[in-house]
Design a protein around this nucleic acid. Structure first.
Length: 273
DNA sequence: CCCCTATCCTGAGGGC
DNA sequence: TGCCCTCAGGATAGGG
């Protein structure tokens, strides 16, 4: 569910809730998440103090005692929040982790179980980041060049390339459509057929779209919430995502929905010819 | 190698 | 009301 801006928002709000507090005794459900979680390893983090929560792309990292300790991927429906221990426990709650002396706890709720919570040391964190592309917010000139080269090398369709986290991180199904609309690029064009100047516009559009989403604390169209349980405000700013049949905000042509790699893409046939 | 499909799951919503 | 279908913010094994 969450894309880069949502995960960054979760990290920021969780940091607020968790940093400086000591983790208590972990509880977990018997359900398996996307992969089997080594809970005994995760339990080694009990009785340590959280000192940071960060995000790289759609991956979230929690560190204790100046060392990475936990990584989380929220998949489609994962929610990582801190609430009062007295808040009723939702079905599909897979993890409860008290923050000592606060009356509050970290909870992981994930109906579809496509997400993952796992222990994670320094090396593992490095390995995860190494197989991901650059963060569009932190890109150097060299990153720009190599990202564009990687995209031009691919014969896949540009929409699919944008979703590929090994090329660039943080773009998911909502913001891929939104960025292509802003850059006026047809989602079905092959990566190899797009010019360098068009790519420069596209990367700029990705940054604009993600920056706006981050400013609005993410897009909630169904169940996304931040680390404090708050919804995002970015839904009202979307121009094409899930707007099939509605008139394009630029030219009034109805927005079209197509399927690419099994996922919906929304675009304006006129503006993105 | 690269690319595509199916798959992991539950729940919401529409048509009949 | 219920049944069946499609769809949903993601990632990845494995087949062609």
């Amino acid at each position: 569910m969450p894309e880069g801006p949502e995960v960054k928002t979760v990290a920021r709000t969780l940091a607020c809730e968790m940093v400086g507090h000591e983790l208590g005794e972990l509880w977990h459900s018997h359900h398996r998440l996307r992969a089997a979680v080594d809970y005994s390893l995760l339990r080694r983090v009990e009785n340590t103090v959280v000192d940071g929560v960060s995000a790289y792309g759609k991956v979230l990292f929690i560190s204790v005692d100046q060392k990475p300790a936990i990584m989380a991927q929220l998949g489609m429906t994962g929610q990582l929040t801190v609430t009062s221990t007295k808040t009723p426990v939702l079905t599909h709650t897979h993890l409860r982790w008290p923050l000592k002396d606060t009356g509050r706890e970290l909870r992981y709720v994930d109906p579809r179980r496509f997400g993952l919570i796992a222990p994670c040391d320094e090396e593992q964190k490095e390995a995860i980041i190494n197989r991901l592309g650059p963060d569009p917010f932190l890109m150097t000139d060299n990153d720009y060049t190599s990202v564009i080269e990687a995209m031009r090398r691919s014969r896949r369709v540009i929409k699919d390339i944008l979703l590929d986290q090994s090329i660039i991180v943080g773009v998911g199904n909502i913001y891929a459509s939104e960025a292509l609309f802003l850059a006026k690029i047809n989602p079905s064009r092959a990566g190899s057929d797009i010019s360098i100047s068009e790519y420069q516009g596209l990367i700029k559009a990705v940054v604009v779209v993600l920056t706006q989403a981050l400013k609005n604390c993410g897009t909630t169209f169904s169940n996304y919430v931040d680390g404090s349980g708050k919804k995002g405000d970015n839904l009202a700013f979307l121009k094409v995502f899930q707007k099939d049949g509605e008139p394009c905000q630029e030219c009034r042509t109805p927005i079209i929905r197509i399927k690419q790699a099994g996922r919906s893409t929304f675009y304006c046939h006129q503006c993105q010819a």
